[in-house]
């Protein structure tokens, strides 16, 4: 079966590798109040405020890029894990994939609505950080859980 928009199966292990490295880096950063590891590098912001707390736009400025690296690794890794074909990507698995994507979108925005109603100030900023990754995370959890369940039911059948 032809499936559009999916990566080849061989990208899945690479995806897991990038995702886990990004996740570990992110957790280390979070535990150290985003100050360690401190990988300073010059960056060129396209958008920014002109006050003392910010980096003004269109000027080279020093910045710890470990959080940028962590985010990008989690996103690229997560996308590869989520959207690489399974070994036998067929129509039933495509259906599980689509249902999991719908499910993940609902759960993601459900959680976000709860957070909008009950979380405020700086804590809400943390929610926004997690929310960058939760659609992918919820999708990965649900998709792989259903695949695992259907595989187990197949083994029991024989």
């Amino acid at each position: 079966m032809k499936s559009r928009f999916l990566f080849s199966h061989q990208y899945k292990p690479l995806g897991w590798f990038l995702f886990l490295i990004g996740l570990i880096l992110g957790i280390v950063l979070m535990l150290n109040e985003y100050e360690f590891p401190n990988w300073e590098m010059n960056v060129f912001p396209l958008i920014g405020e002109n006050d003392i707390f910010s980096k003004p736009p269109f000027e080279w400025n020093s910045n710890n890029i470990s959080d940028e690296i962590s985010s990008i690794l989690i996103i690229i890794g997560g996308v590869l894990v989520s959207f690489s074909k399974t070994k036998y990507e067929d129509e039933y698995i495509s259906k599980i994939r689509m249902e999991s994507l719908i499910w993940a979108t609902y759960v993601n925005y459900g959680v976000l609505i709860l957070a909008i109603l009950f979380v405020f100030d700086l804590s809400f900023f943390s929610v926004l950080i997690y929310n960058m990754f939760t659609v992918l995370l919820f999708f990965m959890l649900r998709f792989h859980y259903i695949l695992f369940k259907s595989k187990r039911s197949t083994i029991n059948e024989e």
Partner: peptide, 16 residues
């Protein structure tokens, strides 16, 4: 028929 085993199983269980 070129599908995964899960697909055959899901069809037999009337899940798919």
């Amino acid at each position: 028929i070129g599908v995964s085993r899960q697909t055959v199983n899901a069809m037999e269980l009337n899940k798919y």
